[in-house]
């Protein structure tokens, strides 16, 4: 039990500091073009690496995962909002799983 609290302190403390220190410390605008470009691209790169290929396996079934992602991708490409795209992806994956159950 004592271990739990020490672990928690390390876990929460390190996670907080790694987020907050750079946020609080950087008060000036960065002018280096390379650094600026890197910082512009990093969020999209992180999201892409988190999505591929994990998203295809998120539902536990590659087919329903792919159906959800393709349908969500179409809505996202049309510029629909975050909630709508998220809901549509889930609904499409759910329907795909229903269809697969019926076909089986």
């Amino acid at each position: 039990m004592k271990d739990f609290w020490i672990y928690l302190l390390i876990l929460a403390g390190s996670t907080y500091l790694i987020r907050a220190i750079p946020f609080a410390a950087l008060r000036k605008k960065i002018n280096n073009r390379f650094v600026k470009s890197f910082l512009y691209y990093i969020p999209y790169a992180v999201l892409s690496a988190m999505t591929l290929p994990a998203a295809f396996y998120a539902t536990g079934n590659v087919i329903s995962g792919a159906v959800g992602l393709v349908v969500g991708g179409i809505f996202a490409y049309m510029g629909k909002g975050l909630t709508l795209v998220a809901v549509v992806s889930c609904a499409a994956a759910f329907l795909a799983e229903c269809v697969m159950m019926l076909v089986k």
Partner: peptide
């Protein structure tokens, strides 16, 4: 299992 896609749908909507 379908709900697990929500987070990735959101990513799509941010990046696309």
């Amino acid at each position: 299992s379908a709900l697990c896609l929500a987070i990735y749908g959101m990513f799509l909507a941010i990046v696309a």
